[in-house]
Design a protein around this nucleic acid. Structure first.
Lengths: 220, 220
DNA sequence: CCGAAATATTACGATTGTATTACATTTGAC
DNA sequence: GTCAAATGTAATACAATCGTAATATTTCGG
């Protein structure tokens, strides 16, 4: 789900329409205040206008960064201003990208996809939960000090879930991120892999939780 | 120290700012000519725009490869062009990676880290594991006090794997690091060389481990 | 509690990925 | 140029992985 925040209604409409055309879900808000009234943690990405009455886009982004629940959500700024100080301020506020108005819709879509593709999955180091550890360099999983053999697919799924504990990923989300674009696979395949992962991380099976009707998530 | 070469001032500024935010030192140049006026040998990595007035990024990379002092400095190309032939020319000119514009800043940072991690190999001294020793100066391998004849390719691969025990290197990683940039070789070639290495280090064969779907790594 | 829908589990065959061998081509020393 | 070593490719054998379908179990809404 993508959130568009802009005080120009037309821009909100155009972006929402095109995002949906590209297979994304989208919601709009016409001010930072309206955005703040929403549960921001459920968005995967925020497209954010800088110049708005009331709270500015920069300020909203800063507030998002300050909140643990939203600090990792990527933000792309939309702005007519493109002077150096604004760019710097934008990135200081935590921009993942920057698009100057007037923009082409096509360019926005490209950048959205580019940012989402890399969203919040670390590529190096380890992810830990209690005595379970996932090493991104050696691509190994350790439970209670014992190394557990994981296949590539299983590893990638656990990596994804563990990257955002508590966040629910639909089967489609998981398919989009873990599987390559060109392979076509059934939703049910995810279930099977979840079962395999649960079996392998035995003591923590219940940490891979199911949200019936929605998908899966890692439950600390 | 990382050098950013791009004729768009904004891009230079954004990248410099974010590199510094990520703990790197960075310098910028707005043309290949300006870059050449610097002492390139002190940089660990160069982010290089392809399309620039005057000397192109490709040409600058070629000149760097021709100079023994700079030939091993990794280069990441930034480019709006993304057709296959450009990719081929890029890698021929010595690219370690390739980022198409528009890019997300987060992605650039990830790739910078990835390239630096890949290329951080010691060049002198010895690498030891139990009774196996790899001498980087004489380029010889010794197992149980006996010198084992290694070919150049085999030596380089073992060197790489032994540089980061436990870290998984994909076949593409290995190809990029061990083979010359202008040589085009199949992934499967790596398999064959791994087999040859395993045979030669007999007692430690199983230390060269396979991570199916990912690549190979040295297992202490 | 009941039925329907969603999820879990299992087994198995197809697919993909890896190992090994043999062979052809290239390289380099003499 | 010749020979031997080096090295990439292709062919084949082998093994692991992964997706599907069939079946069991759980969850959800009333």
């Amino acid at each position: 789900m993508i959130l568009v925040v802009d005080d120009e209604q037309d821009i909100c409409r155009i972006l929402k329409f095109n995002l949906e055309l590209n297979g994304f879900e989208a919601l709009t808000a016409s001010s930072a205040e309206e955005a703040l009234s929403l549960d921001l943690s459920r968005f995967e990405l925020v497209l954010l206008d800088v110049m708005m009455g009331g709270i500015s886009g920069f300020e909203l982004a800063r507030q998002m960064r300050a909140n643990p629940k939203t600090k990792d959500i990527p933000v792309i700024f939309l702005t007519a201003k493109d002077t150096e100080s604004d760019l710097v301020e934008g990135f200081r506020a935590g921009a993942d990208d920057y698009i100057a108005k007037p923009f082409s819709v096509r360019e926005v879509m490209l950048r959205v996809k580019a940012v989402l593709r890399r969203t919040s999955r670390r590529v190096s180091g380890t992810l830990d939960y209690e005595s379970m550890s996932l090493d991104l360099d050696s691509k190994t999983v350790t439970v209670d000090g014992k190394q557990v053999p994981f296949t590539r697919t299983e590893f990638e799924i656990l990596h994804l879930l563990l990257s955002n504990p508590g966040r629910v990923y639909s089967r489609q989300d998981i398919l989009k991120i873990v599987w390559r674009d060109d392979v076509l696979v059934l939703d049910r395949t995810v279930d099977v892999n979840i079962t395999r992962i649960r079996k392998k991380i035995a003591p923590y099976s219940r940490c891979i939780a199911t949200r019936s009707g929605y998908g899966y998530f890692f439950q600390p």
